[in-house]
Design a protein around this nucleic acid. Structure first.
Lengths: 187, 187
DNA sequence: ACCTGAACACCGTTCAAGT
DNA sequence: ACCTGAACACCGTTCAAGT
């Protein structure tokens, strides 16, 4: 009972998508690594879109839970943003993986609509949390300015991850984040 | 003679990659739109990697020529960065397309090595140009700080394009760029 | 409830054959 | 020099059949 087939599929598929993207995800490869036939994968997830939507939905939920937990313990602004960027760093540490939704954003136009919905929800979860953190620091600021800044921070961190993949070492991710920080983007 | 087959293939393939990515690029679809058979595409580009490498190589060359031309006419720092971000905006204006190398960076781990080489060259072209522009403004600054800032600006603009794809309108790209600008990232 | 083999229309790639 | 049809091993998907 330790090996729930559905969970094994999701685990293998998540790693594959974070490494190669949605389009390169192969039901036959997933089946091989789980130890079943590809037709059996379709029993659990009728289509590739259904699997990707389940993956992205869980990813968005986990991100929301992680970010909410950060707000429970008392952290200052700098510590919150540091914990935020560290989460994206972890994906790179793990075999140069990317944010599941970041990589699928690049493939956005080829995604089934219900996958897009979950990818969008991940973006919303991130930007709403950043908005909340920014609002605590700038209670007087205009709402639309903070919304733009929240999306800007999210976009910048996703972009840092994207370009850091192509460079040899993770050091470049750190340098880019430090440069963002020095410029005042996170303030 | 207006319709050079090789050029028609590259043109159709470039649009496809900028919309759907490398993995979703289909030789049979390209062949159909050009009016030949898919085996004939292989005559001009033996493998999909060869086609993508030719695309990325030309893309990097065109970017280099565009950026060099900006430095010939006299522009102040703000105008140069404005022209730079406007180039990325143009991809979104054109049917929500992405930077050819940005979308392939997401698929980096699944790319043939000679495609990676050209994608890397595009990144180098961009960051070297940004470094040059930043150096003119901060002649006293440490080289490694400006290199980090150059990569940071490139990463941020690629990220802005990435997240703007998922949002309904291009307005969000402008808002993110404005927020970068207001934070001092482009200074 | 869960898995399978076989079939379907797709895919990149190769190659002998055509002009 | 350029194009083609046919074949190969892949792909997602479906479905009747098994347990």
């Amino acid at each position: 009972m330790t090996a729930d087939t559905r969970e094994s599929i999701m685990s293998a598929a998540r790693a594959a998508v974070q490494t190669l993207g949605y389009n390169a995800l192969s039901f036959r490869e997933i089946a091989k690594s789980v130890g079943i036939k590809s037709a059996s994968v379709h029993y659990h997830f009728p289509t590739k879109g259904d699997l990707a939507a389940a993956l992205a939905g869980r990813y968005a939920d986990e991100a929301g839970a992680f970010l909410d937990a950060l707000l429970v313990a008392p952290h200052d602004h700098k510590a919150l943003l540091g914990a935020y960027t560290a989460a994206f760093r972890r994906a790179l540490e793990d075999d140069n993986k990317m944010c599941l939704c970041g990589i699928m954003s690049a493939e956005y136009d080829g995604l089934p609509t219900h996958v897009r919905t979950e990818v969008d929800r991940f973006t919303d979860t991130n930007t709403q949390w950043l908005f909340r953190v920014l609002s605590a620091r700038h209670p007087e600021a205009a709402k639309h300015d903070l919304e733009a800044r929240a999306l800007a921070i999210f976009a910048a961190v996703e972009g840092a991850q994207l370009v850091a993949r192509g460079r040899k070492n993770i050091h470049w991710f750190d340098k880019v984040i430090d440069s963002y920080s020095a410029s005042g983007l996170f303030d």
